[in-house]
């Protein structure tokens, strides 16, 4: 019986101390971010491996998500004779919800896992301690450029995802299914608000970018330095990022669009 309570206590303490370590880690990284501007080459290399290499998966999924929205939306809206609002439906769902959330999930799978594995392996092979021995701060040299790159890439990838999704919806709705092109765009333009919808979507994506990079980098930095530890940390990154994205999305939506 006591053993049972001991287990609960251990788990609670462990998760709280992890949360504390993660918070200190985030503060250190944010402090170190300024020094990245002294060496922009580091940031550029990370923008390439985090942003540019995620470009393909984001644009192709955006195209297909938009096409599916156009197809499904057309079948449902045509029951009510409201095919003209297809553009609004596609754009509103992409800009507000699907764009930020799906591109964040893809980003966590594509870039977040890679970040954790990279940092975790650096720790396992004692490269990070090696840097410290040479009086190079690994947080400044390794972590901060990756964090900034995630922070910058995420909104870019999200806007790309949403824009290409709207074009995908147009390909299916207008070109294949024959919705009038004028009403596709005009219904969209009349009802999508720049500040209310687009800016809020971009804010969501910035929040997701920070959270994913934070989780991925911390899991890598905090990993148990064995091969099994790295594999577990990579799994945890994807799972925790997915939880964080979906949970935060609900909270952000409630704050932005709801009247809570």
């Amino acid at each position: 019986m006591i053993c049972f309570f001991e287990k609960i206590g251990k788990k609670t303490l462990a998760s709280f101390s992890k949360l504390g370590r993660a918070t200190f880690f985030l503060i250190q990284v944010i402090k170190a971010c300024l020094s990245v501007f002294l060496r922009p080459k580091l940031l550029l290399a990370q923008l390439y491996s985090i942003g540019v290499l995620s470009f393909m998966i984001i644009t192709i999924s955006g195209l297909f998500v938009g096409m599916v929205l156009g197809l499904q939306g057309f079948y449902i809206l045509s029951d009510f004779g409201a095919e003209e609002t297809l553009g609004l439906m596609v754009a509103a769902s992409l800009v507000r919800e699907l764009g930020p959330v799906i591109s964040a999930l893809l980003f966590a799978g594509r870039a977040g896992s890679a970040l954790t594995a990279e940092i975790g392996l650096m720790k396992t092979t004692e490269q990070l301690s090696g840097m410290e021995m040479m009086a190079v701060d690994p947080i400044k040299r390794v972590i901060a450029p990756r964090f900034l790159a995630g922070f910058i890439s995420m909104p870019i990838l999200t806007t790309l995802f949403s824009s290409i999704g709207v074009i995908g919806g147009q390909i299916v709705g207008v070109i294949i299914l024959g919705v009038d092109e004028g009403s596709y765009w005009s219904q969209m333009q009349a009802n999508i608000d720049f500040q209310g919808d687009i800016i809020n979507g971009v804010i969501k994506s910035i929040v997701f970018g920070v959270v994913i990079s934070w989780i991925a980098l911390f899991e890598g930095y905090d990993t148990i330095p064995t091969s099994e530890g790295v594999s577990r940390a990579t799994t945890r990154t994807v799972v925790n990022s997915a939880f964080a994205i979906l949970g935060l999305d609900f909270i952000l939506t409630a704050l932005m669009f709801g009247d809570i």
Partner: peptide, 19 residues
């Protein structure tokens, strides 16, 4: 190119989607 495409996409959203 990546950053420029992001900026283009943002302007596309501002002008074409939200008018």
């Amino acid at each position: 190119l990546f950053v420029a495409s992001g900026i283009v996409a943002f302007f596309f959203m501002a002008m074409q989607i939200s008018n």
